[in-house]
Design a binder for these strands. Structure first.
Lengths: 117, 117
DNA sequence: TCGGTTATTCGTATTTCGACGAATAACGAA
DNA sequence: TTCGTTATTCGTCGAAATACGAATAACCGA
């Protein structure tokens, strides 16, 4: 089952993704639908280790605003925050993006449309 | 450079995606951040051929609302609309999702965080 | 116990989104 | 030319998102 590692490209479960729950897909996409949140993820990609409030100055918004973006990412399951008082250590949850990734891959490998160019 | 077919999994250009333009990523994600728009894409995946106003009844919203969703998808480059008066023939533009897909793949293959569980 | 440090919540203002019906556009067919 | 069919644009409304500063919470160390 793994989850990570394999990154199963296009298997049986893929076909199902064609009819995957639109709500779920949309929710995941929405979590990444703001530049600040993408930046947060990119930061966590760069500095693999968890980060505290460094994220705040990294993306250049007020602490309260950043906290809200982190909340949204957390709610979507994309990141997790380990409390290490007085700070919080954030890190990515790589498996969370799978449904959206599969959906995109399905689009990308779709047969070219009839468009005669 | 192909574009489709290969679906280049994780190559040199991937690393760059770690610092990919957050605006671009966010814009793509935003286009898919609504269930109705995901449904439109799913419909176009199922019925590979282009569709006219069938999309309207497929997703069950008013024609004007649907048109707006289609506009957003078009603006993001995810779909194209070929005019065939008096109707419009929509189809997917599979290559458009590449940047977002690469970004997601990068997340998914990121080294597991330090979280000792 | 008392500050110091960091994160989150709260209240608020502004902007954007999402939905609808009505009106409009744009052509093929009769 | 006039009608019918389909898509889009427009005006509007309520809901949601975004941003901020102030206030609050929650611990660790002195």
């Amino acid at each position: 089952m793994a989850g990570r590692a394999a990154l199963n490209p296009l298997t049986a479960s893929t076909t199902i993704a064609a009819g995957a729950d639109p709500e779920r897909i949309a929710t995941l996409a929405k979590a990444l639908a703001h530049p600040a949140r993408v930046k947060v993820v990119q930061t966590l990609l760069r500095r693999r280790s968890c980060i505290g409030c460094d994220i705040v100055e990294e993306i250049g918004l007020a602490a309260s605003t950043t906290s809200e973006h982190l909340r949204i990412l957390k709610e979507a399951g994309l990141i997790v925050g380990e409390i290490a008082r007085p700070r919080v250590c954030y890190s990515l949850n790589p498996e969370a993006v799978a449904p959206l990734r599969v959906f995109l891959q399905l689009i990308e490998t779709a047969p070219a449309p009839a468009l005669p160019e």
